[in-house]
Structures are given as structure tokens and as C-alpha cells.
């Protein structure tokens, strides 16, 4: 029972992390029909920039004030939103009308650039660092003799809040309506007076801010931040991407569902089947999904319109 609750808790926290990252993939895909392969590097950037901000504000040690975490989080999200805006503006926008493959290759280029630039001494450097404890170590409560730490609760609560906020934005606001219109047809949206470039910019900024939230929470939970080109970051991004595809890429709810499912398979696979093969289970699910339901759980198969 204890093990089960423990695994369930892990599923929830890891699923939240994947969800935050998967939403960025799905938002950008939804609007531009392209996979932003530099997205996982924005997650890395968010985590590292949070580390830098915490250091600059003198919260590197223990005993930082209660508002340290929200302040660092918001600043890191803002910095990452700025990064996302810049990437779209400089790298992707000039290719808006180019074949998809060109944009895809550019995205890989942007990803490599970020991974390598991050290792510069002037930026984050080549050595791993420890994220400061911005949240109390003490467990917040206990479930079936499993201690639930603050950071896990923060991860889940914040993710749920951000997902609800995003859902509201996409389906209840004028901006969300414009995003969905651009997603269907950029040209028709422009004919209705929708400023397409601005909507695309905002979408990138939202996706990048969510990625940063994921990165910061990752840092707070696992503490160690590897250098920006470390494969661990790529794997984190890749699994979130799998979550977005399994849930139905382009679909907000799907990304969340996919994230929880992927986390469940990874955690319970490692817990009850084999601790050596969690990645095999994750990518196995992707293959099965692509074979039998390529549009994903909540995705709708695209029908060619006449």
C-alpha cells in the first residue's frame, strides 16, 4: 500500500511536469503545425535562469523568505517568454511560408545553439549546480505513511492552476478565439482582422512561460541542474513531447491526459515491472499509439476538406 501511494504520488508530480512542458509543444503545433524542437531547451533555460535569479537575489542558501519561490518563478517565466518571443521572431517567422522541413531543421539548429550557448562561462557554465531550496523541506502532510513534501504539492497545484488558466484563455477569451482561428487558417484569420503575427508571438510566449514553470519545478524537486546540453534535458523534453502526441497533439486537454498517462506508465513500469526499462515503456506506448490511433487519445483525425 505504501509503495502504491508512493508511486501514485510520483505519477502525479512527474505527470504535472510533463504536462507543463507538453502544453508548449501542443500550443505551438496547434497554431503553426510544426514541432518546436527547441522547446525542451526553453525548459532548461527556465531552470537555469531561475537558479541565476535566486543567486542574484541572495536566496542561494537556506532560509530564503516565503515569497522567494513565487518571485523566482515569475521572473524565470518572464525571461523564458522573452526567449520564446525572440526565437519565434528571429528564427521561425522568416520561414512562415517556407516548407515545413526548413522550419524543422531550423528548430534543431536553434536547439543546438541554446544547448551550446548555455555552457558559455558568461551564461550558465559547464558544471552542474544545485538549485537552492526555495520551498520548505518539511513534509506538508502524510498519506498512508507516505510523506508529501511541499514541492510536490506546489508542483501539482501550480500545474492544475496553470492548465485551468490556459483552458480558460483558449476557450473563453477573445485571444483564445483568435488563436483557434489562426490554427485553422492564418489567411482567413487575417481577413477577419486578426493580427496573426501578434497571436503567434503570444502563443510562443505562453508556451515558453509554461516550459519555464516546468523547468523551475523540476529544479526545485530534483535539485541538480545538469549543463544545458545534457541528454537528461533532452529526454525530459522528449517524454513531454511523447505525452503531447499520445494525448493528441494540438489539443490542450490531450496534452494533460497524455502527460499523466506517460508518467503513470513510466513510474508504475519502473516500480512493478523493471526499474531499468521505464523509457522503453514510454516509447513503447508511443509506437502502439502511432500504430493504432495516430491522432492520439483526444486528437481528431484530420479530414481533407474539398
Amino acid at each position: 500500500m505504501t509503495k502504491f501511494v508512493q508511486l501514485l504520488l510520483q505519477t502525479l508530480t512527474l505527470g504535472s511536469l510533463y504536462a507543463l512542458i507538453a502544453l508548449g509543444y501542443t500550443l505551438v503545433y496547434g497554431i503553426l503545425r510544426f514541432i518546436n524542437f527547441a522547446h525542451s531547451d526553453v525548459v532548461t533555460f527556465g531552470a537555469w535562469v531561475a537558479f541565476a535569479i535566486a543567486g542574484a537575489l541572495g536566496w542561494a542558501g537556506t532560509g530564503s523568505p516565503v515569497f522567494a519561490m513565487p518571485v523566482v518563478m515569475i521572473l524565470a517565466m518572464a525571461a523564458s517568454a522573452a526567449l520564446g518571443f525572440t526565437i519565434e521572431r528571429l528564427a521561425y517567422r522568416p520561414l512562415r511560408k517556407a516548407p515545413r522541413l526548413n522550419v524543422l531543421i531550423t528548430a534543431i539548429g536553434v536547439s543546438l545553439l541554446l544547448q551550446n550557448a548555455g555552457q558559455l562561462h558568461a551564461l550558465f557554465g559547464k558544471d552542474p549546480v544545485k538549485m537552492p531550496r526555495l520551498l520548505s523541506e518539511a513534509p506538508l502532510f502524510k498519506v498512508a505513511s507516505v510523506q508529501v513534501p511541499w514541492v510536490d504539492v506546489a508542483l501539482v497545484v501550480l500545474t492544475v492552476a496553470l492548465v485551468i488558466g490556459l483552458q480558460w484563455l483558449v476557450f473563453r477569451t477573445k485571444l483564445g478565439q483568435a488563436m483557434r482561428a489562426v490554427s485553422w487558417s492564418e489567411q482567413t484569420a487575417a481577413l477577419m482582422g486578426v493580427p496573426v503575427d501578434k497571436v503567434v508571438s503570444i502563443t510562443f510566449m505562453i508556451g515558453s512561460a509554461l516550459a519555464a514553470a516546468g523547468g523551475v519545478l523540476y529544479g526545485l524537486k530534483y535539485r541538480q541542474l545538469n549543463q544545458t546540453a545534457d541528454a537528461l534535458w533532452m529526454l525530459l523534453g522528449l517524454k513531454a513531447f511523447v505525452a503531447a502526441v499520445v494525448g493528441g497533439i494540438g489539443n490542450v486537454r490531450g496534452a494533460v491526459l497524455g502527460a499523466v498517462l506517460i508518467a503513470f506508465i513510466e513510474v508504475f513500469g519502473a516500480g512493478y515491472v523493471s526499474s531499468k526499462l521505464p523509457d522503453l515503456f514510454v516509447f513503447g506506448v508511443l509506437i502502439v499509439m502511432l500504430l493504432f490511433r495516430p491522432a492520439g487519445l483526444l486528437g481528431t483525425a484530420t479530414v481533407e476538406k474539398v
Binding site: 478565439q177 483557434r180 489567411q187 482567413t188 481577413l191 482582422g193 493580427p195 496573426v196 476538406k305
Partner: peptide, 29 residues
């Protein structure tokens, strides 16, 4: 989108409605 603002509205060929939005949302847009 700035041309629309000047008072020129274009109903495109092939209808170009937003099939992923409701009728009401199409009108809103």
C-alpha cells in the same frame, strides 16, 4: 488585418469558415 480595419471585408473562396469554431464564434471573429 489592417485592411479590414479600413472597412474592406473579404469572404474568401471555398467559404473559409473556421470549422473548428462554433457558428457563434465564427460570427464573433
Amino acid at each position: 488585418h489592417r485592411i479590414v480595419a479600413r472597412g474592406l471585408s473579404h469572404a474568401p473562396e471555398g467559404r473559409g469558415i473556421f470549422a473548428n469554431l462554433s457558428v457563434e464564434e465564427n460570427l464573433d471573429i
